[in-house]
């Protein structure tokens, strides 16, 4: 599943644009899917498929910006590259504030777009890797007992075993045992790595 080939998802209401972009993608051997509207894209959206989105900012019905905020709500991590026209400054600013990766202004050169797509696919793959790591860390954290979590919390705060022992009323030897179980369960031998793991998921879990 992880090795899935990335796809460029193109969403534009203009058929001529869709066709030419599709051709461009195919000419460089890039897997591509085109959609005439945000609704059409949402209907087939699958969060497990890697890639990036090329999105027209102006469309009848649901606009590009509306699709972006919908995707944000859905925690979609696909990087978005907006296609904007001349004079769309306020919309482009909004799009970037809302987390769009980049934008391209019409008319553009093919290579310009291809470069942006390269960046997009790279970003997506990095984000997915990170997400996978987070999941793994969370999974490991979930196997800790309450005591082990407590010890971990103190360890991450940088306290020595002796201090932790006094803080939570255990013998130093018991703290040492908990600590080594924590290291084992978290799959690490280094304190620095342990701390880094906890820091990586600190927004998602409280010790």
């Amino acid at each position: 599943m992880q090795e899935q080939e990335p796809t460029v998802f193109i969403i534009d209401d203009d058929e001529a644009v869709r066709d030419s972009l599709k051709l461009l993608m195919q000419s460089v051997g890039q897997r591509v899917e085109v959609f005439a509207s945000p609704a059409e894209f949402l209907a087939s959206y699958d969060e497990n498929r890697p890639g990036c989105i090329i999105l027209d900012i102006r469309m009848p019905g649901m606009s590009g910006l509306e699709l972006q905020s919908k995707l944000n709500e859905m925690h979609c991590i696909l990087p978005i590259i907006f296609i904007t026209g001349h004079g769309d400054v306020q919309m482009a600013v909004q799009a970037i504030k809302d987390g769009a990766m980049n934008f391209i202004q019409k008319p553009f050169r093919d290579q310009e777009l291809l470069d942006l797509i390269n960046d997009g696919l790279k970003l997506d793959s990095e984000q997915r890797k990170e997400l996978l790591e987070h999941k793994e860390i969370l999974k490991r954290l979930a196997t800790l007992t309450e005591r082990e979590r407590e010890v971990l919390k103190h360890v991450v705060e940088g306290k020595a075993n002796k201090v932790i022992a006094a803080d939570i009323n255990l013998s130093q030897r018991t703290v040492e045992i908990h600590r080594s179980r924590v290291m084992e369960k978290m799959g690490t031998k280094s304190l620095a790595h342990l701390v880094r793991q906890v820091m990586q998921v600190k927004d998602q879990v409280e010790l």
Binding site: G87, D88, V89, A92, V93, F103
Partner: peptide
Amino acid sequence: VGQSGEVHCAVNAIK
């Protein structure tokens, strides 16, 4: 503060 055509400049500024 800029002109309405400066999409590129605006986006870079925000970034």
